[in-house]
């Protein structure tokens, strides 16, 4: 298996450090608007690192692809600075409101239009959605195998790729005999490189291509909210059945009271 072309799927997500500013309004049952900046999904940096490392070893080209609103281009620019050769943003008003299925479909069409790669690398999940579905669903649309939970990746020359992937109580080792293949990676796999100044300078010459629905040649009904089998049917604020009793007093007194509770419950 010769890896010549690698595609990395990345997502621009609300900065996780400030994501808690987006909440369900208890009164209107809608999301509160918060001006949270978009950043690259952390796991996608691990995907970029995996792709760039492998590309360095086998001499492949790396393309970063994302579906998102126009500001997501900044995240792709970062991927170019990290070392991606090309970047494509799939952006169209009709893509809005996509669930994992419609997202995977749109990404698959973008990847196809760009030309089938030998390898697609995704982060295992995104901090704002955390479904873990995009990579496997993408593999279905690309009609190729997938390995999720990747913790190890090794190019074994013509023999293909050797992939280790997390199981609940251990791991499995899978040999990929031929591409294309989709890999969903975990943070265990690597430590992502920092963006370098010279990488930023090199990225000056690279543009983020922006492709809309027409460029992908697909129907509006197949993307965005219309193309999504699932919908959000309701939102509510959770209520707890527990009634809290506060432990008060000086620090010492609070610690003593907690020790008493622990002893009474048989923990101590």
């Amino acid at each position: 298996m010769n890896v010549r072309k690698i595609v990395v799927c990345v997502k621009a997500v609300p900065d996780p450090k400030r994501a808690s500013e987006i909440r369900i309004d208890p009164r209107t049952k809608t999301l509160t608007r918060a001006d949270v900046p978009l950043v690259i999904n952390q796991l996608d940096r691990h995907a970029m690192e995996a792709a760039l490392k492998l590309a360095g070893e086998v001499g492949a080209e790396v393309t970063a692809i994302s579906m998102g609103p126009p500001p997501a281009a900044a995240v792709l620019k970062e991927c170019l600075a990290m070392g991606a050769g090309r970047a494509v943003l799939l952006s169209d008003r009709s893509f809005a409101g996509a669930d994992a299925y419609a997202t995977a479909y749109t990404l698959a069409k973008g990847i196809e239009v760009d030309g089938m790669p030998d390898l697609v690398v995704c982060g295992m999940s995104s901090s704002d959605g955390s479904t873990e579905w995009v990579a496997p669903e993408l593999s279905v649309f690309l009609d190729c195998p997938v390995v999720t939970g990747v913790i190890g990746l090794e190019a074994t020359g013509n023999a293909g790729l050797k992939v280790s992937a997390r199981l609940d109580n251990g791991y499995r080792v899978v040999k990929v005999n031929g591409g294309p293949v989709v890999l969903a990676v975990t943070r265990e796999l690597n430590t992502p490189r920092n963006i370098s100044f010279s990488g930023i300078i090199k990225a000056r010459k690279k543009e983020v291509a922006i492709w809309n629905l027409e460029r992908l040649g697909i129907a509006a009904a197949a993307v965005g909210q219309d193309g999504s089998p699932t919908i959000i049917s309701g939102m509510r604020v959770a209520e707890s059945t527990r009634k809290v009793q506060m432990i008060e007093g000086t620090r010492e007194a609070k610690a003593e009271e907690l020790v008493r509770l622990l002893a009474a419950a048989g923990v101590l």
């Binding site: 669903e137 593999s139 279905v140 997938v146």
Partner: peptide
């Protein structure tokens, strides 16, 4: 929602062109 279930379920869902929610 096991390592295997989380891979298998979306593969089945996408092939059946249906939706799937997580966790």
């Amino acid at each position: 929602s096991t390592a295997c279930g989380k891979e298998l379920a979306p593969l089945v869902a996408a092939r059946l062109k249906t939706g799937i929610s997580a966790h």
